[in-house]
Design a binder for these strands. Sequence first.
DNA 1: GATGAATGAGTTTTCATTCAT
DNA 2: CATGAATGAAAACTCATTCAT
Lengths: 192, 192, 192, 192
Amino acid sequence: MGEDKKNNIVEAALKLFEEQGYHQTKVSDIVREAGVAQGTFYLYFQSKEDLFRSIAEACLEEISEALKHGPHAPCQNNEVYYWMIQRSLTVYYHNRAILSIMYRNGIASQEIRDISQAFYHEMMLIIKEHLKEWGGCPDYSEEQLEIAAYSKIGMVEMVAYQWFVVQGHGPEYIDSIAQVIVDMDSMEVSEE
Amino acid sequence: MGEDKKNNIVEAALKLFEEQGYHQTKVSDIVREAGVAQGTFYLYFQSKEDLFRSIAEACLEEISEALKHGPHAPCQNNEVYYWMIQRSLTVYYHNRAILSIMYRNGIASQEIRDISQAFYHEMMLIIKEHLKEWGGCPDYSEEQLEIAAYSKIGMVEMVAYQWFVVQGHGPEYIDSIAQVIVDMDSMEVSEE
Amino acid sequence: MGEDKKNNIVEAALKLFEEQGYHQTKVSDIVREAGVAQGTFYLYFQSKEDLFRSIAEACLEEISEALKHGPHAPCQNNEVYYWMIQRSLTVYYHNRAILSIMYRNGIASQEIRDISQAFYHEMMLIIKEHLKEWGGCPDYSEEQLEIAAYSKIGMVEMVAYQWFVVQGHGPEYIDSIAQVIVDMDSMEVSEE
Amino acid sequence: MGEDKKNNIVEAALKLFEEQGYHQTKVSDIVREAGVAQGTFYLYFQSKEDLFRSIAEACLEEISEALKHGPHAPCQNNEVYYWMIQRSLTVYYHNRAILSIMYRNGIASQEIRDISQAFYHEMMLIIKEHLKEWGGCPDYSEEQLEIAAYSKIGMVEMVAYQWFVVQGHGPEYIDSIAQVIVDMDSMEVSEE
DNA sequence: GATGAATGAGTTTTCATTCAT
DNA sequence: CATGAATGAAAACTCATTCAT
């Protein structure tokens, strides 16, 4: 019962944050959309920022959880790479609402900044491990591996944002995008 | 004289937006930092958002301007690629303040969103042209080229943000980061 | 059972009103401290103010009750005076919690103001009677007796508040305080 | 100009606090009464409590200032005593608004409590000095002098509150009240 | 009797913007 | 051009009280 109302609030907030942005969305908008009273909001969240933090945390955790687990069957070479890209895109596609919110609303506060930063750091560590396991960069220093990892994250995030959020394409693009990203890398070298 | 004050306001705003974010920075903070009166602000800018838009526009233009022009000497293969990455990193390094502001403050309004989107679109077109000239992807469709271009942008932006803004490293990293990004791509293929 | 809960509520309220004041204490604080549900409060009290009124009334009644009855053995001169002071101090000591609350929380509402005023009026009448019986002021008008009575009340209240509440001293001070007050009056005259 | 508005706010607040009490008076009431905009209030005071503190501080300081200075001509015996009582009553009469506010509104916060306590302590020290100079209580310990001082304060405060605030009498009562208080003390002794 | 989730009217507070000087 | 006191609409948040279970 209580969880129902809390859920309504979260759903309403997600919808409105995505549509109009965090700062443009008033608590009164959220409760109207959720069909609850003003006070009910503060029964479940300490403040508007607390709600945003809670949403951000949950979604970022979902993303990192999804990327944490490697491919089911062992695979080699850039199959891992392909898997990683494809998997990331899928996760981003399903979380395109929050991705949009994080991208478009930036850092609402110091606390959100820390959460966001911790998320990227964790993502980077996961990717770095994948890169090591995969063995594609044998003589890279830790620092170089980190640069490589961050670049992968940025790549996927930007393309996902442009394709799924800005242009509004559906999941049918996931495979072809992944293919382009992986092929592109190969091609660059086949040039040499 | 007047331009002096306008400049002071812009400098103060850049500093404060970077330190505390757009929404957290009050006009009264900006004018105090700039050493001008409250009303003076509105002699030079129509609104707080107008100031942000003006700053964003100028900086994004500077970035796109810097990337618009190809390498001075003709070069081949992934030399162009290396040049592009290195050039982007340099530009991002010098504009790390605004990069940080755009990253951390997201889309302050519909108008800013449009400016930001237009910027990414223009960037994408520039990169796409570079990719075509370079000839690295002969049989790519326009769409595939766009995906490739966006992925480059995301890659550079994320690494630059993490290295220059979050970790605070200096320009001495530009070359080694560029090297990692380019090499990494090569390596991926040398694996096959 | 029911009375148990009511008692818990009263005890909790007394504690919290004393610690943090009436206006700073929320009904939710009281019920949490009392270990009952929010709704239970309204089974026993019509409102938060009703609770305060109930507490204030009970305590003020206790105080006036204690002062109503003269000394057990007939006594003369300022023995009555000493008895009165000492008795008042004792009563105030035992009701220092409510004294503190009344002092520190002032008049929560028109109704409380009336109760408080009625209390002081009643006290004044009691003291006035004591003064008359004692015969210390033979040719005083009613008005002059009232002034004298109020001054006694203020004297005891202030000293009790400062000694028992602010400085936290114990009942062992009652006698010496009474002595000072009575002696002081005498001394003033012995000067002449 | 600016001070004009600030003054209006203070006047309005004094009036309303006295009429309806601190907690019953809304900032919106104050600004309406003062004829200024809502925001103007926060130009001069950080919060409603800040205003109350500011008023309380100023008035308590005025009272203690008025009592600090002894009688102009040297005088002996209980002439000093009479002077002190009369002077206190006069001061209390002129500050009956704030006296009423402090009495009726109690301690709005921890900070106000501290201010109030500091005021009583200072008053007590002043009275104690007067008592010493006067020499009426030669062999009193410091502690006994403090009890005596607090009892004087309570006496005057209560009578002033009852006469000037509750019953609304005018300054013509000051002398007769002072007379009663001083005479009463004498009489008590003349009885023995 | 007892519960505690839900309410919503009511308050404080903020801050971009204006305009008389 | 420059000022800065004044504005007031708009927002977040509070909490005593209710009522269905």
